[in-house]
Amino acid sequence: MAASYWDSTQKKFWTFTKPQLQLVRQKLEESDRNIVSLYPLPDRRYLSIYFYHQLSKMARPLGIRQQALATAQVYVRRFYTRVEIRRTNPALLLATALYVACKMEECPQHIRMILGEARHCWADTSFTDVTIIGECEFTLISELDSQLIVHHPYRSLTELQNQFQLTQEENSLAWSIINDHYLTDLPLLHAPHVIAITAMFLAVVLKPTQGGMQGSAAGLTAAMQTLGNARNATGGAHIRVQKLVDWLAESQVDIEAVVECTQELISLYEVWESYSDKACKDQIAKFVKARGMDTRRE
């Protein structure tokens, strides 16, 4: 949005290579080794799914749209590269991230409405008054260095949709793949247009008739093969797919990045099958309770 993505704070400060991201997190865990070993947590993707469910639960009654939800998810992910999760009350952070995201995405919600939904959502006694969200807002914005403008792949998808004349079904599948990528580290690793291209590519290859992404491992394998063809610029696939593959091969788009995104999404859909809401909830509750963050503020 602001300027192009290339001059954005997202590109400059919030896009990492995989090893960089790993190092950042490792440092964070090392500085809090005690609580990290005391309170083991599920796979990050499970936590992300859990967070997403909680955010959606809050957002739905308020009619908050997807883009604000996506921005909130990005804030949470960025925040947890700066602050160890076990030092926080994730429920409070999620509510606050949603509150700030709504303002930033021009669909503001009154702080009391957010508080009400948060209280309802977690049955959490610590959500006593709006001041705690207000305080957390300061912390969140400080940790994010006030860099609140997020570039999403949705806009690139709209452009691609026109260029490739995607069908309604393909477009909505691509859209939901973009929604899913917020459950992974991809928003911290790749440019939004790379995500959009990946989503479009998967949508066209997988065809929406297969009824959603989850569990269609065969289709995904086929997608990978087609992408492999793009790398070697040899063909053989369906005409439409071929057109896309040719375009990919000729464009400046980093095919390796698209492959990496595809793999990341595939493994998300694989782990998703064994997701358990309860496991996440319980493990988070443990450190929140033990550290007294649900009743006491420090």
């Binding site: 602001a2 300027a3 930033m104 006030s146 860099q147 609140l148 403008i149």
Partner: peptide
């Protein structure tokens, strides 16, 4: 919020 975000961007 807008002003802070735009100023940093």
């Amino acid at each position: 919020i807008r002003e802070m975000a735009l100023c940093t961007e």
